Amino acid sequence: MARLCHHMLAISIATRHAARTMQPFPFDIVGFDLDGTLLDTSGDLAAAVNHALAEAGRSPLPVAAIKPMIGGGARHMLSQGLEATGGSDEALLDRLHRILLDHYARNLSIHTAPFPGAVAALDALQERGVKIAVVTNKLEGFAREVLRDVGLLDRLSCMIGGDTLGPGRSKPAADPILAMIEQSGGGRAAFVGDSIYDVAAAHAAGVPAIACRFGFLMQPVEELGAEAIIDHFDDLIPALERLG
């Protein structure tokens, strides 16, 4: 009898464990910001900013100073760089913006690489049947080329850039997150980013946000208002499961 009870208890424990492990993953789609979230693009973006600043006779800025300027698009990043080195006007910004884009187009992926653990996290999501998307304020053409260079473009269900939907429809608007969900076939989504643009866009679309402490933060990560914070991509799957 004791052996039978022990056997039945073991079966019960195994059954409960199997039920837990077989529970469906809580999200159908996980979207990612690009710069400062999925990829560390800071070296190449800083080089482009400093190339443009040099054309105006300005001193270069360190990468650490440029990181918080990233996230709102190239023009916004350059504008902040100019303000940090003596100020600007629209004519100068227009001229240097073209110079920055030209330099960046020729030097997109020299230093750029996925953040540690990013590829493994994408593998884990795809093993769970989750669709992966990118929503970025980077110009779509640049984003696609960078993602192709690092071998991630073919993994995506969709890729939405800052110019994909037209003026006024990039993050922090809800539009690109809603488009991500539609283009990925619908379902429950979460969004991972490193800026207030990312969190605001996710929340405007009714989607939970996860903030990356390792990103190009413009402010303390705790102030972004995300539902969860991760210190490394190893934390992503557990964070998503808790949000579910």
Rank of each mutant, 00 (worst) to 15 (best):
G166V: 02
L96W: 08
P176W: 05
G162H: 01
R106I: 03
D89P: 08
V150F: 14
Q23M: 15
L125R: 03
L78H: 05
D163G: 03
L78C: 10
D94T: 13
P26K: 04
G57A: 12
V192Q: 00
D35Q: 05
G43W: 03
F191H: 14
G129E: 05
R58W: 11
A10Q: 15
L61E: 10
V119P: 00
L45W: 11
L82A: 09
A202I: 15
P62L: 13
L125Y: 06
R95Q: 15
A47T: 10
L100C: 08
D231C: 02
A113L: 10
I160T: 01
I177N: 03
E227N: 11
G151N: 14
P114A: 04
D235F: 05
I229S: 09
G86Q: 13
E222T: 02
I229R: 14
M22Q: 11
F214S: 12
D231G: 04
E182L: 12
L224I: 10
K67R: 15
E83F: 04
L236A: 10
A48I: 12
D89F: 05
L34N: 00
N137T: 06
G72S: 08
E127K: 14
A18T: 07
C212Y: 04
R144E: 03
L224C: 11
F216S: 09
S109R: 00
L92Q: 07
A105D: 10
H103K: 06
L178N: 15
V207S: 10
R213D: 12
F142H: 04
I99E: 14
V30Y: 02
G187F: 02
L93E: 07
L240T: 11
G72N: 13
A65R: 12
T37V: 04
I110V: 15
G43E: 10
H17M: 11
V49H: 04
P176I: 07
L4P: 04
A56E: 06
L224G: 11
G129A: 09
L243F: 14
I13T: 13
V135K: 08
R242A: 14
L217F: 09
P238G: 07
A10N: 09
E90R: 09
A124P: 01
A2P: 03
D175K: 05
V207W: 04
L240D: 10
L61A: 13
G129N: 09
A201N: 09
G71Y: 09
T164K: 03
V119I: 11
G71I: 08
